[in-house]
């Protein structure tokens, strides 16, 4: 469809979370919590309980009984759970690219990015961490949401549902947010086709880990077109009419690989994580590959 203003609307500009997604999110968070507990247990057995232990707090119904400090229970008659370093201090920041090009794909790249962002932040919250979500909002200004408690989960979902793929917001504006400087872990979600690796990797270091998730739509990763096509950039409306053949597809694939390889190489060189995801991938796979 051709928009009246000459721009081609992206496939889906909105973020929508279905009932099924909520159920999947709950399962994902539960698995993340369970895995964290097991890993903590293994680390505790290997290194001794005292290494990771930062303190105690009262037990909340439903918590993993393996975290229960049985000694304190016997001594005080009150259930207390151990508080580990990660629970106490992990500060996760998720940078979400919401430029118009993120609306490309079915489901859109933004949809997957939003699902991954929620999954990571909810998993972090379940493990005692806190999250800062960053994205462009109305008028291109930077908006954030701080997820510090389980009570704020619903609000974080609502905040995420207000994200729309529109405009041409600069990633640099998000990356310069001071909230990122306090984060231990920064996850950047976007197609990043108009960003430079160095721009993102400046965040790395000083105990801060950067994980880059480059999300591309199927038609961007492996276009299935032949013949005439008019490619349109939904961010600026620029277009290019091409007669696409097999050779053109090969050349395109090569050029795209070159760009992606630059990101991979740059991140690897700085000891950071780079992932490539297709927009129709399951968020569990993408977020699971990042989850520490």
């Amino acid at each position: 469809m051709r928009a009246e203003d000459g721009l081609v609307p992206a496939d889906s500009a909105r973020v929508e979370f279905s009932t099924e997604f909520h159920a999947r999110l709950e399962r994902f968070v539960a698995r993340a919590r369970s895995r964290a507990s097991r890993e903590d247990g293994r680390r505790g057995a290997a290194r001794g309980q005292g290494v990771e232990l930062e303190g105690h707090r009262p037990y909340r119904a439903g918590e993993d009984l393996r975290d229960l400090d049985w000694e304190l229970l016997a001594r005080l008659g009150q259930p207390w759970v151990r508080v580990r370093r990660a629970e106490q201090g992990e500060r996760l920041a998720v940078v979400l690219d919401t430029s118009a090009s993120m609306g490309v794909g079915a489901p859109s790249k933004l949809q997957l990015a939003a699902e991954v962002a929620l999954a990571l932040s909810c998993a972090s919250l379940a493990n005692g961490g806190r999250s800062l979500l960053l994205a462009h909002g109305e008028g291109g200004r930077v908006e954030n949401f701080s997820l510090r408690s389980a009570n704020a989960r619903a609000a974080s979902i609502a905040w995420m549902e207000k994200r729309m793929a529109r405009g041409a917001g600069r990633l640099g504006d998000l990356l310069s947010d001071p909230g990122l400087r306090r984060a231990h872990r920064v996850v950047v979600l976007g197609d990043l086709m108009d960003a430079e690796p160095a721009e993102v990797l400046t965040l790395a270091g000083w105990g801060r880990r950067v994980e880059v998730v480059q999300i591309l739509a199927e038609r961007e990763l492996a276009p299935q077109v032949t013949g005439g096509v008019e490619w349109v950039d939904p961010e600026v409306g620029a277009s290019l009419q091409l007669a696409v053949g097999e050779r053109a597809l090969r050349e395109y694939g090569h050029a795209l690989d070159t760009r992606l390889e630059r990101w991979r190489t740059a991140c690897r060189g700085r000891g950071q994580v780079h992932r490539l995801a297709r927009s129709d991938a399951a968020f569990e796979d993408v977020a699971g590959a990042l989850e520490p």
Partner: peptide
């Protein structure tokens, strides 16, 4: 028409006369 976030890549390909 097809929207894409990789228009620059296509431009690069077009400039190289592959298409």
């Amino acid at each position: 028409l097809a929207s894409t976030g990789t228009l620059e890549v296509w431009r690069e390909v077009s400039a190289e006369a592959a298409v």
